[in-house]
Design a protein around this nucleic acid. Structure first.
Lengths: 218, 218, 218, 218
DNA sequence: AATGAATGAGGATTCATTCAT
DNA sequence: TATGAATGAATCCTCATTCAT
């Protein structure tokens, strides 16, 4: 009995501890998503978690520490979501489309992720670098594979890397562009089509041009 | 002669005033470039400009005011630079290349611009929106023109807009990627080629694929 | 017992909190009394209370907030004191005398009250208005009562109101007049007599005048 | 001719100097009247006078200096006005009435005076003391005279002095009471009557009282 | 482990005053 | 003498972090 009680107690204690930590984490994610890192004060975070200020420091050494944890944890969830969504795709383009769409469906489910991701570059640069490393690494592997399979042009790794950045950049900016004031993202189909067409065929028409005007920012 | 003297004297007064304002502006740009908006304190800015703290408030009503001025002013310089660099290009692709390269050569000349631009989204959101509006507007016009001339595929405006975001996003992320710890940007030629190839032909090989592996983030 | 202990512990926590708040309040009252609102900086107040500056903001949202609290709290004490002192009086004139004297004996006990009261008109206008409202309201009721009882002349409320202002004004100015450089008030008996005589009989002699000189400010 | 010119020039210069000084003084009076001493910044004062900030210090050694000058100068004007208005009165009570009314008619003409007067106690205490000394001195002489003439009761100077304070206090508070939010004073006739009745006969009814209620602030 | 009060460094801003022109 | 820019001291307030209970 006593043993059981102790065991149960210990378990409960660890569990409880994890629950508190999770509550803080979740609160931090929401608060950062709503107010941005800059206004994500310990007060706000602990209030949202229904805890006292001091409790925070039983679980995280500093404000920065929880900031640095946000992106890795949520980024992993994002990757898992995307993988799962894209798992059924066959061809290179199909996979691209599925994972492209999955990124946006993830944002729909976790509206605060976009802000956490964007602002991390400034407020959690280390975490941001790490996240990018993960993302680009995975993407590189995917492209190398497609290259090996002859699905995409035979490009060197030096070309593939900037390409990866382009594709990731694209997702981020489009998300920003199509997020409304309530933080809800709504990607138009045209954008998906355009993205895929760019990948598939580029932009140029097959017809000879008529004449040239001014430049892109001209 | 007396008139000249007076004029000269008055000019000097106004001139000095402008010089001080410019010094503050320049100091702010550098400090924000180095430390980010968040750590760009009035103390730092005025110290760098060799002025007393109070002097700042003779020229700007608040810290936010100078923050809000940074991007518009420097953004205009960027546009001027790009236009000038791309002025000789003839075809759509040439213009894209020139202005693409010009963006990076501008960053070489003004290393602090990138950080000012990136962080403005958070710290000077109004200015950032305006800047984006300018940039995307110009880009749209350019693409419409190319479309009219038959240089690019006949896409609707609903497709053009996401495209613009993709292209701008690309520049920003590549700049980030190829900026070293000293803030110096160094874009490899491979990246330029890749960018242009994507625009010109897309990614797909003309050969039939062998098989498909995992997805892009897989 | 455990319950008692817990209760006691909790009490102590709350108690200490109240002690600190009181210490800040008391310090603020003294500092304002000595230096005036304008020079009652947070630094001075917290130093006098032996607390860190930041502690102030755990108890008051702003400097103005504590300023706004000074008069209501001390004003209530003044009223309590006066009521208590005047409780034994029977006739209208006795009551007037007792409460008149009580005002000054209160100032003896709380030398800083006078300055807090006077300057509140400028630095805590809302509180000052409220205080005046309280005071004049009570005075009006008192006078109406005396009127009903036939103790004083049968005057309309339109006459009573300015009268109330006259009587209150009198107290304030006499306090000012008879406060020395150390902030100690010392009302001469002659002043009390004069005050009561004015109320009782007015100024005029019952003899016919000889002749008239210049005016009051002549 | 040259001599005349020089003389004229010199005169003009002195005149001009005085004009500027007056303009600053007038501006200060208005600004203090509108915003209070605390918000009467050099910037505001000089702006209202259409002069540069620095010009102020050619005429006054400090902000405090002009503050200290406000009340003496305007106070003298007030006295002159009252004397003039009350010059025709014959009896003690007539003189009181006339000068009482004159105080309020002066405030009508110079709405900013009341605030300057009231706040001077805090922001120009020396000037305020001096002003009070002047006022009370004149009032004392007036009362002594009336006493000598047998117009008022035969009171000692020790009684007369508090009396003076009561009467002056009365004016100040009634002015405050009957000034509307636009700074316009409007004294009801009832207040004048009450004031004069108090002086003439006091408050008490000639009838025996019925019973006694609570005290004045009870 | 939870609490929440105490701390104090740090930063923006104001404004009287100085001073070179 | 008029100007107005430069100065820097002074002050309120915020908030991450510490620590006693």
């Amino acid at each position: 009995m006593a043993a059981m009680g102790r065991t149960a107690g210990k378990k409960t204690r660890v569990q409880r501890s994890e629950e508190v930590r999770d509550a803080l984490f979740q609160a931090a994610a929401e608060v950062v998503g709503e107010y941005g890192y800059i206004d994500a004060s310990i007060t706000r975070i602990t209030q949202r978690a229904n805890l006292a200020q001091g409790t925070f420091y039983n679980y995280f050494a500093s404000r920065q520490e929880i900031f640095d944890e946000l992106l890795p944890v949520l980024g992993a969830k994002m990757l898992a979501h995307i993988r799962q969504q894209a798992s059924g795709a066959k061809t290179f383009l199909e996979k691209e489309e599925q994972s492209f769409r999955a990124f946006f469906s993830f944002l729909k489910r976790m509206p605060y992720f976009l802000r956490i991701l964007n602002e991390a570059e400034i407020f959690a640069p280390k975490a941001h670098r790490q996240h990018f490393h993960n993302i680009t690494g995975g993407y590189m592997r995917f492209l190398r594979n497609a290259r090996k399979n002859g699905e995409i042009a035979n490009l060197g790794d030096e070309a593939l890397e900037p390409l990866v950045y382009m594709l990731i950049a694209t997702r981020g900016y489009l998300a920003l562009r199509y997020t409304d004031e309530n933080g809800v993202v709504n990607l138009p189909e045209e954008a998906v089509r355009m993205y895929l067409q760019l990948l598939a065929k580029g932009l140029l028409s097959r017809e000879p041009p008529v004449s040239a005007g001014s430049g892109p920012l001209g």
